[in-house]
Structure formats: structure tokens, C-alpha cells
């Protein structure tokens, strides 16, 4: 039998530190999309909370904590990052563990780096800790979340992992260069 080696989406590309900002890859045991059927929102939220400790997030929000987080990802849908889930009655679920490249951008100036890549309003008073957004990042569809004062989670499609790292590190280089002036 052929022995296959599991590789993470950003294998060989990360971590990178440029200036004061660091880009690292995050791996989760599982990524599952959860979409409650009409009228089942409260029941699904309760079951989800019992299973992994986080309720179904409201639009533009995250619930839970690192490695057990639910992220709002669109109309009536959340992505659960962390433990593998058991089937939830009343919800449509898909396993997306291998579909996403997940990275964390952290450090002084992380916001300046993101501001070069996305049209999202990133001001700290608007995009607060615990907020999430489905938006575009360097013309890629992405999920952004603010997980700390100067820490952001970024998810992009796995097929775009190399592009994601390229574009973010380009922006990191530009921000670092400006800081040195």
C-alpha cells in the first residue's frame, strides 16, 4: 500500500516574521460547516453548545475559544473550528477540514497589514475582538476574525494557500518597510 503523508495547506511556507508581525499556520482537528434548517436555529445552537461549548454565533461574530470556536460564515451558516462534531439534528453539516487554509496574523501593525488587503472597516472600535467577517482579501474570498488585541485569524480556500501567504507576506514587507522610514 502506498504510504501517504498528510501535509497542512501552508506546509513549508510558514511561519514568517517580518518586522513586528508574524504569520503562522493554525491546524484544527476538524472544520465543520453547520447550517440550521429553518426554525431549528435555537435547538441547533443548544446541541452545538452541549457538544463543543460554544453557541451558534450571531451574524458577524464568533463564539467559544481557541481550538473550539464557532465562526459565523454567511447567511445561516457557521464554521466550527476544533473538535470533530457528532451529527446535529436539524442542521445541514459538511466536513470541510481539508478545504481551508487557516493562518493567524499577530503583532503590532497586524491591522495595517490587513488594511492593505481588504476593504473591511478594521478600526478597533468597529471590528472588535470576537467579531468575524466574510469579506475579500486580496481578491480572494476569506473569513476574517479578530481573536485578540492585535491578533487576527484568516481563513481562505486551501487551493489559494500559496497565494494567501504570498499576498499577506507582501503586505507585511511593505508595512515593515514604511515603519523603517
Amino acid at each position: 500500500m502506498i504510504e501517504l503523508l498528510a501535509k497542512t495547506p501552508c506546509d513549508g511556507l510558514l511561519p514568517r516574521t517580518i518586522g513586528t508581525v508574524t504569520l503562522t499556520e493554525i491546524s484544527f482537528e476538524a472544520i465543520t460547516s453547520v447550517a440550521p434548517l429553518t426554525g431549528q436555529e435555537d435547538a441547533v445552537s443548544g446541541t452545538l453548545k452541549a457538544q463543543m461549548g460554544a453557541a451558534f454565533p450571531k451574524p458577524g461574530r464568533t463564539t467559544g475559544k481557541a481550538h473550539a470556536r464557532a465562526v459565523w460564515s454567511g447567511l445561516g451558516q457557521a464554521l466550527v473550528l476544533g473538535p470533530a462534531l457528532q451529527p446535529i439534528p436539524g442542521a445541514a453539516m459538511t466536513d470541510q477540514t481539508d478545504a481551508w487554509a487557516c493562518v493567524a496574523l499577530e503583532g503590532d501593525g497586524a491591522r495595517d497589514v490587513l488594511a492593505r488587503l481588504t476593504p473591511l472597516d478594521l478600526r478597533p472600535s468597529v471590528f472588535r475582538q470576537g467579531h468575524a467577517a466574510r469579506t475579500e482579501l486580496a481578491h480572494m474570498s476569506a473569513v476574517l476574525m479578530r481573536t485578540g488585541e492585535s491578533r487576527y485569524g484568516i481563513m481562505a480556500f486551501r487551493s489559494m494557500a500559496k497565494t494567501l501567504v504570498h499576498d499577506v507576506t507582501e503586505a507585511m514587507t511593505s508595512v515593515a518597510a514604511r515603519t523603517r522610514l
Binding site: 451574524p59 458577524g60 447567511l75 476593504p119 473591511l120 472597516d121 467577517a133 466574510r134 469579506t135 475579500e136
Partner: peptide, 11 residues
């Protein structure tokens, strides 16, 4: 109504 004010290029 869900995401708040967003740039036209997202639509």
C-alpha cells in the same frame, strides 16, 4: 443587513 456597511466591490 447582516454584514453592515461594505464596499461596492463585495457585491
Amino acid at each position: 443587513p447582516l454584514c453592515g456597511p461594505r464596499d461596492r466591490r463585495e457585491f
